[in-house]
Simulated scan of single mutants.
Amino acid sequence: MQGTRLDTARILAARQVIDPVFLNTPLYRCEALEAELGCTVSIKLETANPVRSFKGRGTEVVAGQLADSGSRAVVCASAGNLGQALAWSGRGRGLDVTVVASRFATVAKLDRIRALGAGLELVDGDHELARERAAAVARYEGIRLVEDSLDIETCEGAATIGLELVDTVPPFDTVLIALGGGALATGVGHVMKARAPEVEVVCVQPLGAPALTHSWHQRRVVTTDSTDTIADGVAGRRPIPAVLDDLLLVADDAVLVQEASIIAGMRMLLDHAGLVVEPSAALGIAAILEDRDRFAGRHVVTILCGSNVDVGAYHRWVGAAPIHRS
């Protein structure tokens, strides 16, 4: 594909170095959701792995390259999921991993980063401040800075999800992808356009963290001063220009959804599918809820990208909804 940073040959090679525990994740039709959503819904479940998110696919590629080159230390900024994944991948390869995060990040995510043996530095600010601090640590220590979505390995690792999707039968019409930094959307979108161009690629972001969606629509980087969403995993304010360039080549649409719809999506996934997910993973369901007519009668795949959620916050959001067994 002309003009993109991603390369299909490297994506195929990535699948050979990623620990199999992250590959071939469950993909299945969830009929229990369909009556309320008005379309055929398939779920790609990226939570059934040791770090409970898709991020391990990318960090496996990064950590493998670092270990092969003789590197012994690495640092990243993370809202939680990337940090867990890098800690897991680095631990198995003898890497000294440091994660910089906001002290306001989800406590469960921070605890898991520590439990996986990574050093954790907290900053009094949001994820963008954590990115600045991680860059400073990398310069001072002379070590590799892993930047999610900017580092192509994170995008091409995520793209292996797309390889698994295009092999599915029967075919589907639309894939709904959570949009944060852009690694998942550009990676999966690249594979879709290369191997299944008839599939509509729709990116979904919270109304309270709209920077990359606004950037996609305006075809230029648009930043915001703040974010206001429970979907912390996608709450960026400053899109990366190179990532936007890739996204413009592969996304057919980018939409914003309200917080109430995200919560309703989480509740539906618990109630009808028995799945506990973090807010970012419910963005696809939220998009269908807000525009049923658009997706009516179609076969939609939504990627459930993570399930690292604070239990107390989760219960406040979704309540004690019972699980309906079909």
Rank of each mutant, 00 (worst) to 15 (best):
L248C: 06
D291A: 15
E259W: 10
P239Q: 06
I303K: 02
L304Q: 07
A287R: 15
T302C: 12
D246M: 00
A251C: 14
D293R: 12
R267T: 15
L244K: 02
I303R: 04
V204A: 01
L244C: 10
H299K: 12
C203P: 01
P279N: 12
T213F: 01
I263V: 15
D253M: 02
R238Y: 11
Q218V: 06
A296G: 03
D228H: 13
V255F: 03
P239V: 08
L248Y: 01
N308W: 01
A264I: 08
A273R: 12
P241R: 05
T213M: 04
H272L: 15
V201Q: 07
G284N: 09
P197S: 09
T302R: 00
A235D: 07
R219Y: 03
V277E: 00
A251Q: 00
D271A: 13
A260W: 05
V301I: 14
C203Y: 07
V202K: 03
S307P: 04
A281F: 01
L304V: 15
I230T: 14
L212H: 02
F295E: 05
R298H: 11
E290G: 11
P206F: 08
G297D: 08
E200T: 09
M268I: 12
L248R: 04
A242E: 14
R238L: 02
A209C: 07
D246G: 09
M266I: 05
I262L: 09
L275W: 10
I262R: 09
V250T: 03
A242D: 13
D228Q: 13
T227G: 09
S215H: 03
D228W: 09
A273D: 13
V250W: 01
I262P: 10
G236E: 09
H214L: 15
L283I: 08
L270G: 00
L244F: 02
R237M: 15
I288N: 03
V276R: 09
A235K: 03
Q218N: 12
V204Y: 04
D253G: 02
N308G: 06
E290T: 14
E290L: 12
T213R: 09
P197C: 08
P197F: 00
I240W: 04
G284K: 08
I263R: 15
V221D: 06
D232G: 15
A194N: 11
P279R: 06
L289W: 11
L244S: 08
V234K: 02
P210T: 05
I230S: 13
A264W: 06
R267W: 10
Q258I: 00
